[in-house]
């Protein structure tokens, strides 16, 4: 009996330790962002918001990167959601078989492909097409890695659609487009919006593809963080990281509202 209690205690302790392992780096980033000193130490000795003030008021290069990130994330969210939603709806209506399986595989294949290979391939390919370094290149690259997520999320909400309402609308003479717009889409709207938010978060935080496809004028926040870290540890990196984490959390709220943590954990 004693041994079992000891075992349970050890298990509990290791779980708290692991939870700490997952959360500690996030705490470190946030805590070092409000440090008053230029050296990044945890826990910080003195607190101040001077680096936040610098980010919003002084640092032109960080603001430019912020704008680039916002442009790329918005473009990616729109393109990936349009392509992924249409693809999910289209595959849902295909009859089950080899063809549908092949298309589904093609759509999720970029997911297990190592990012460095995608980054390399897109880099030489877009250079050949003359668009490397442009916003378009970044948006296309980010769309490639986010479409699978949009596809998975939208396919999950399609299973919850009441297809009898679709049938009824068609029987009453509605066109396919009318039926989709007025009957099906309202039932999947929240899921589609959630998918767009997921795509925006992934794009905001994506690093490797952005590093290979951007140039001096289009580099995004993670790329500029990387560039800054090559020289020395900079508190501004903590500030930007904290802002990126906050943005991800804010964008994740509607997603969690739609799916709930548990369903999301099994979906992704």
């Amino acid at each position: 009996m004693r041994r079992r209690q000891l075992g349970t205690g050890l298990f509990r302790a290791s779980i708290w330790l692991l939870l700490g392992f997952v959360l500690l780096p996030i705490v470190v980033v946030v805590a070092t962002s409000i440090s008053a000193t230029p050296d990044v130490v945890f826990p910080p000795e003195q607190l101040s918001v001077r680096y936040y003030r610098a980010f919003f008021l002084e640092e032109a290069k960080w603001q430019a990167a912020f704008l680039n990130s916002a442009i790329v994330a918005t473009g990616t969210a729109i393109l990936a959601t349009a392509l992924g939603t249409a693809g999910a709806y289209g595959t849902w209506t295909l009859s089950a078989g080899r063809f549908r399986k092949a298309i589904t595989t093609l759509l999720v294949l970029p997911l297990p492909t190592p990012l460095i290979v995608l980054a390399l391939a897109l880099s030489v390919y877009f250079a050949r097409l003359g668009i490397r370094g442009s916003y378009l290149a970044l948006i296309l690259g980010h769309t490639l890695v986010t479409v699978p997520f949009v596809f998975i999320v939208v396919r999950a909400v399609l299973t919850r659609v009441d297809w009898q309402t679709h049938e009824a609308a068609r029987d009453l003479g509605a066109t396919r487009w009318q039926t989709f717009r007025e009957v099906v889409f309202p039932q999947i709207r929240s899921g589609v919006i959630a998918a767009a938010f997921v795509a925006a978060i992934l794009s905001l935080h994506e690093f490797l593809i952005a590093l290979f496809l951007s140039d001096f004028g289009t580099r995004t926040l993670p790329v500029l963080e990387w560039t800054a870290l090559r020289n020395f540890v900079d508190p501004m990196v903590s500030v930007v990281s904290t802002l990126l984490i906050l943005a991800a959390l804010a964008l994740a709220v509607p997603v969690v509202v739609v799916f709930g943590v548990d369903r999301l954990a099994r979906l992704l």
């Binding site: 470190v28 990044v40 130490v41 993670p222 990281s241 984490i245 991800a248 943590v261 999301l264 954990a265």
Partner: peptide, 23 residues
């Protein structure tokens, strides 16, 4: 427990790696 790994999943690799430097 699940929320913690989901949040971590979303965070940029640069941030995840950088956070270990001061530690």
């Amino acid at each position: 427990l699940l929320g913690a790994v989901l949040v971590e999943l979303l965070i940029s690799i640069v941030i995840k790696v950088y956070a270990w430097v001061p530690l």
